[in-house]
Design a binder for these strands. Structure first.
Lengths: 258, 258
DNA sequence: CGATGGATTGAACTGGTTCAAGTGGAGTGG
DNA sequence: CCACTCCACTTGAACCAGTTCAATCCATCG
């Protein structure tokens, strides 16, 4: 496997100066939103302008429309992906078609890290998405030159591991109501992170079936739980894909079991 | 935070020459079994003799007896742990006492990586254990000097992430029978890795209640499923803590749902 | 040898599933 | 602009896998 060899790459590429400035200041998400060619959002915070230019050289931008598969369980895994716009879900399947959604991803999130050579989950676009990808090998071999990058990647995977543990607790020990309440709160957190401000208006780009497969339930149970929360005045539904958290404090209590 | 500063540490310490030799050859598990003071087993494969000596300087050995807590959810997380002998379980709890076991760990396994400053799970000794711990900060700051160590840690956390995903699929979508069959097969794999040979005689050091909390079931269901597998001749039970996999092929099919 | 605590077994119960029928909103085409 | 279709979502009712509650068994240990 070849190294990045930062010092030997030439420093040209389609990176806007504004984006580079934003990126080098750590305003990664903003940098990406400027529409620059540098979409390896979260990584940029640990790279300098020069290194960002190099990263943009080895990255490729892609657009996918809703429901398209980005990578499939069992395939060769040459790339790490970073989401620029839109939402993606990761899932695993049993041979008879039962599906477990292992995560919903949003702008700034990475995937493709948690595998050795083969993807062990399928990534599917929920909405239209812009993603950017880089060669795994190059990233994973550049720690010598970029120790900060290694630390960042470890930080990312550790955060991942933590939310996986929370999800295992949810799947194994929470009832349907607690599951949905936890889910709504986690969606609130994610949207707060993306918008840099907390709001009680939550968008749910995924279908009831995606939520069901994420929470280990059926669509019918999800629907009933939404109806219950709606009727008891804890949330307000506006169609199937928008929720207003009327009583987030109550929701928080219910997420852990009254 | 201070770096390891490998080059400046003095090279003395209670490391046996035999262990060092084994370790530097990559025979980590064996090295540990020799009873040396160098218990950071899995890490050693990417370190040379000199580095191993340094690691042994910053590590501390501990012994815990069965049922003792090694670290608790929410506590400050200054250490990374490596298991030398015995078995450990990791768990998370809801406020009302419902517990989810997120993993069983055996010699050579690490824990304490998946957290930022605070442990997000409780680690408890299942059997008497010998563990060794090192300062997190020192490990995580030594990538500049030891890029291979960084890669190893990423590899470890990625393997962790993968088995977490498998476990989510199990928790969310498998029925009781499939869950227990999957569990038995994963225990077989782990024991094969430890003994460097595959066997159908599996030791189960954990209690029925630990298994139940791992699989998101009750002890009664676990017990009934054991009885079923026993009666249908797929396994043979020898007390509660030893199983013989009479028909591992059948078990494999049942783990994914007939 | 009796006591203690984990493991097993039995029987009633229930939360969530399954199956089946409706509802509603977005897109299409006349 | 309305009628029609499609499909995701909702709602209802019967069912069942796994839980809960209650004995009982059995291995270990002082």
């Amino acid at each position: 496997m070849s190294n990045l060899n930062i010092s030997q790459q030439k420093l040209s590429g389609p990176v806007s100066e504004k984006a580079l400035k934003l990126a080098s200041n750590g305003y990664l998400r903003n940098a990406a939103c400027e529409g620059c060619a540098t979409q390896h959002i979260s990584l940029c915070s640990v790279l300098n302008v020069k290194e960002i230019k190099i990263f943009s050289e080895i990255s490729t931008d892609t657009h996918k429309t809703a429901k398209q598969i980005i990578c499939a369980e069992g395939e060769d895994a040459p790339y790490i992906f970073n989401i620029r716009t839109g939402a993606i879900l990761l899932s695993k399947m049993l041979s008879d078609g039962r599906r477990q959604v292992t995560g919903f991803l949003f702008p700034g999130d990475f995937f493709g890290l948690a595998c050795n050579n083969r993807y062990n989950y399928t990534a599917e676009a929920i909405t239209d998405v812009d993603i950017c990808r880089f060669p795994r090998a190059k990233i994973l071999n550049s720690f010598k030159d970029l120790p900060k990058l290694g630390e960042k990647i470890i930080e990312i995977t550790q955060t991942d591991l933590q939310s996986n543990h929370d999800q295992m607790l949810l799947l194994g020990r929470k009832n349907a109501q607690e599951k949905l309440c936890s889910f709504l709160l986690s969606m609130q957190e994610k949207s707060a992170k993306l918008q840099n401000k907390k709001t009680d208006d939550i968008a749910l780009p995924m279908s009831r079936s995606d939520i069901a497969d994420y929470l280990g339930l059926t669509i019918e149970t999800i629907s009933r739980q939404f109806t219950n929360l709606n009727k008891s005045g804890i949330i307000t539904l506006d169609g199937a894909h928008k929720v207003f958290l009327k009583n987030p404090e109550r929701l928080r209590i219910m997420a852990e079991g009254d």
